[in-house]
Design a protein around this nucleic acid. Structure first.
Lengths: 235, 235
DNA sequence: TGAACGGAAAGGTAACACCAATTGCACTGC
DNA sequence: GCAGTGCAATTGGTGTTACCTTTCCGTTCA
């Protein structure tokens, strides 16, 4: 999951951060817009300390810049840490959700094939077994047209591969891929029933990884993702 | 650049953040290690507020977790936002610099070919012209064996392509690539004089982009990066 | 034109009340 | 004796408030 699961203590600055982050990501607070701590305090009914902490986090994400005498200025999107899971989440929740899904899908096409290839080389025996198992589960869920459960297993499938790649930069994208898959389903960009080719390709990826056939794993994953992209384009 | 240019006011919490971030990234504060605000205050001679702000930022990067009564716990690397520019920088400055360079190079191999392909489709006329120009400059610098200047232009070359791709996720990696190139040079992983093949491939990428030949741009960039990786491996 | 000044807003410090989780201890029951 | 239960003290983050410092924008005045 991208968002933290609410463990009991939800700290006060969190909702503030969330709200401001969303508004900036949505463009409601455009680049150049100036906030003040006073205004934030007032608006959320919180103390200065809490307002400052929320602001500091936004600043570390590159969303705002704080200067004395001036206030807290919203920075242009080019300055944002667009790989920050929270930023990705906020953008996916906002009006440019479609655009964000497209750029993320491009990123997936870049990364996941290589990750699959690496997984074929580096995965543990348990991971190889699980991948094959998941592919089978996906097939049966797909044939049963159980879309939500299919998606959850699909998330697990891709996350497993990314983590099995042995490159923690790839592994860190597991949450992102999860968000994309979920977002895609919510946007209704999925066919009503997964197409058979998709299941075949999942199988092909799984088999190649199980056998350590790196090049085949990479190719199959690339084919799978290109399929995904073309399926998304009309939407 | 990854690090902020010191605009006059360097805010007190910044050195604290930097030091703690480095120590965590370096493994001097291993996962599970517990800090307290009191200790941080004392150590850096700062007020509680400042210590808290630094801690909050580390927390938003996933490096630590703060819990009542327990203190501030260092989290395992799997929880870190490894795409955060600061985290990348810290890891590149630490003892696992070599490993980090390798994972980042894998990431480059994944992303840059697709970015080059996209740039061939999306670049502006000015960008296409600049790319060709840079390739020529690189050739002459390479032949003159001016390594530092070569590297700076190379940084510009790759950053330009990533930004011209039209995908801001790719564009955000420009700083990362810059850090990798600089780090590689500092580590002495570069040949004393750039190999001719590298210059030919830069030319090929530039020409393909200028002409809008997307597939060729992608292939040439992939060849270039694979060359880069094999050159790095012995080091 | 440019230098000086006033004030706005963030930066930073300090002291405090509060709350939650952990630790330890005492008590119980077997 | 030993294990489990429950209560109380302690510890360390959370949040509030008040107050001072620093920077720098805008304005005014020479």
């Amino acid at each position: 999951m991208i968002e933290r699961r609410n463990r009991s203590g939800a700290s006060l600055h969190d909702p503030v951060l969330e709200k401001l982050g969303m508004e900036i990501a949505a463009g409601e607070l455009p680049a150049g817009h100036v906030l003040t701590l006073d205004a934030i305090q007032e608006r959320f009914g919180i103390s200065r300390t809490v307002a400052r902490e929320a602001m500091r986090i936004l600043e570390s994400m590159g969303l705002v810049e704080s200067r004395r005498r001036v206030g807290i200025t919203v920075r242009p999107i080019a300055e944002w840490n667009v790989f920050d899971p929270k930023v990705i989440w906020w953008r996916l929740s906002g009006p440019d959700r479609g655009a964000q899904l497209r750029t993320l899908t491009e990123l997936r096409i870049a990364v996941e094939p290589l990750a699959a290839g690496a997984a074929a080389r580096a995965a543990t025996a348990a991971q190889r077994a699980r991948v094959v198992e998941l592919a089978a589960v996906l097939r049966s869920l797909g044939e049963a047209a159980d879309l939500t459960e299919f998606m959850e297993r699909d998330v697990e499938f891709h996350a497993l591969l990314l983590q099995a790649s042995g490159n923690e930069m790839f592994g860190a994208l597991a949450d992102v891929v999860a968000a994309v898959l979920r977002g895609r389903t919510q946007l209704g960009l999925m066919p009503h029933k997964p197409v058979p080719e998709a299941m075949d390709l999942h199988d092909a990826v799984a088999a190649a990884i199980a056998d350590g056939r790196s090049a085949e794993a990479e190719a199959a994953m690339r084919a799978l993702l290109v399929e995904v992209r073309t399926a998304m384009l009309p939407g």
